[in-house]
Amino acid sequence: MISYIFKDRIYFSFLRETNSVFLRSAVAFFLSFCIALICYKKIICWNKRKKNGIGEQIRDLGLIGQKEKEGVPTMGGVVMIFSTLISTIIFSSLKNIYVIMLITTMLIMGIVGFLDDYIKIKYNKRGLSIMGKILSQILLGFLIGNIMYFFTNTNESILDSKFLVKKEHGFKTTLPIFYSSHNNEFDYAFFLSWYNKKWKKYTWIVFIPMVILIMTFLSNGANLTDGIDGLTAGISSIIFATLSLLSIISSNKTYSSHLHLIYIPHLDEISIFSFSFIGTLISFLWYNVYPAQIFMGDTGSLTIGAVIATLAFINRKELILPILCGIFFIENISVIIQVLYFRYSKKKYGIGKRIFLMTPLHHHFQKLGYHENKIFNRCLIIQMILSMLVFILLII
């Protein structure tokens, strides 16, 4: 946007250099970081003056140190969305379909999370119903899946009259480990064409449910992980950095060819959004590391998971999410296993039994006596290892 405004004005020579995506991404990062850092401090101070006006209401889970978290301001995710949106609007091209998809994902899931947090603060601690959240995630996944499949992947402008796709059926993505001359490409049409090649044109039957499943699973996974100071924000920062680097490689025809990744035209603009989000996440960590001075709430955690899912699909790297977002997936799976086993044992033995001391999984380790700061640090180390593993599987 800023490049468009100043492109014909010679006396704005520095701003005209913002045609460099790297420079715009770097400036967007610092702008987002500064805006968020100031806003978080203002919220913390305001909450103290108002005597816990938007303070977190902690449920009694029998965990050490939970009482100290009572009254800590929540809904920090609002600042995440605001600072990221401002930086993206200023420095990115709003004609790029990928940027629009990311902004749409952030705003829709941010609104859902905000409603959930608002209900928790004003009315009851449960917030929105589980089905209400899942339904919103399904609808968002359906929207993103349709845009990704039925709209062009090579046309930068959403204002172009040829925006609707007239291309061959199928949707190609990246399959890790299996190197081929086609840069590790895998087509979703495989799931249907192995039985009948005529069914290839119905690939959307496989692809769109995949988007919905990952969107729902990852958004809830990030939400469930947000139970220890700094955990979700710290893990997400590394995930965003990994996906940002992959998007930079995939947007360049030379780099993508040498490193065996799918070349995706016009992908470089999303790095501005990614760096903006990383900036606000790092500033949030400044106040959220133990002992936390502010929480992101569902406004932030639901949004983070959904944006990561959309970013992965845009990069054609969704099949590596179980590895890259392994902690989010494990946290989610631990809850599912606990609930299913409890119901099964109650039905069979008449009394509900548990596999874990408490779920999500990080609470299990808290119950074992681990300090939440140690859990946070070790999860960060695990996430770094997972990110390096992703590069090994994709590039080598």
Rank of each mutant, 00 (worst) to 15 (best):
Asn155Ile: 12
Phe171Cys: 06
Ile214His: 02
Tyr149Gln: 11
Ser251Ile: 00
Leu321Lys: 07
Lys95Glu: 10
Gly145Ala: 14
Pro176Asp: 15
Met80Gln: 05
Asp298Trp: 10
Ile375Gln: 13
Ala222His: 08
Leu102Lys: 05
Glu68Gly: 01
Ile97Lys: 08
Gly62Cys: 08
Tyr149Leu: 11
Ile205Gly: 01
Ile323Met: 15
Gln366Cys: 05
Leu135Tyr: 11
Leu213Tyr: 11
Gly352Cys: 09
Lys374Gly: 02
Gly71Pro: 01
Leu23Met: 02
Thr216Gln: 07
Leu285Ile: 03
Ile64Glu: 00
Arg59Leu: 05
Ile86Asn: 01
Asn183Lys: 13
Leu85Tyr: 03
Ile121Pro: 05
Leu218Trp: 03
Ile5Asn: 02
Ile5Val: 09
Ile54Gln: 02
Gln293Val: 06
Gly227Tyr: 01
Ile272Met: 00
Lys48Arg: 15
Met75Lys: 01
Phe33Ile: 12
Gly230Cys: 03
Ile214Lys: 07
Thr174Val: 15
Lys317Val: 09
Ser257Thr: 03
Gly300Lys: 09
Ile375Ala: 11
Ile97Asn: 04
Leu224His: 03
Tyr40Ala: 03
Cys34Leu: 07
Tyr4His: 07
Ile238Gly: 03
Tyr370Ala: 11
Ile314Cys: 12
Gln338Met: 13
Leu159Ala: 10
Ile81Gly: 06
Asn19Gln: 06
Ser32Lys: 09
Ile395Gln: 14
Tyr118Ser: 10
Ser193His: 06
Asn373His: 08
Tyr370Trp: 12
Ile208Gln: 07
Gly53Trp: 08
Lys7Cys: 01
Thr303Ser: 10
Lys42Thr: 12
Leu164Trp: 15
Ile235Thr: 06
Val78Pro: 01
His182Leu: 13
Ser180Trp: 08
Leu85Lys: 01
Leu259His: 04
Asn153Ile: 14
Phe30Asn: 04
Phe329His: 15
Gly76Asp: 04
Phe150Asp: 15
Arg343Leu: 13
Leu380Val: 13
Arg59Phe: 00
Phe150Gly: 12
Gln383His: 08
Glu56Met: 10
Ile395Thr: 15
Met215Val: 09
Ile100Ala: 13
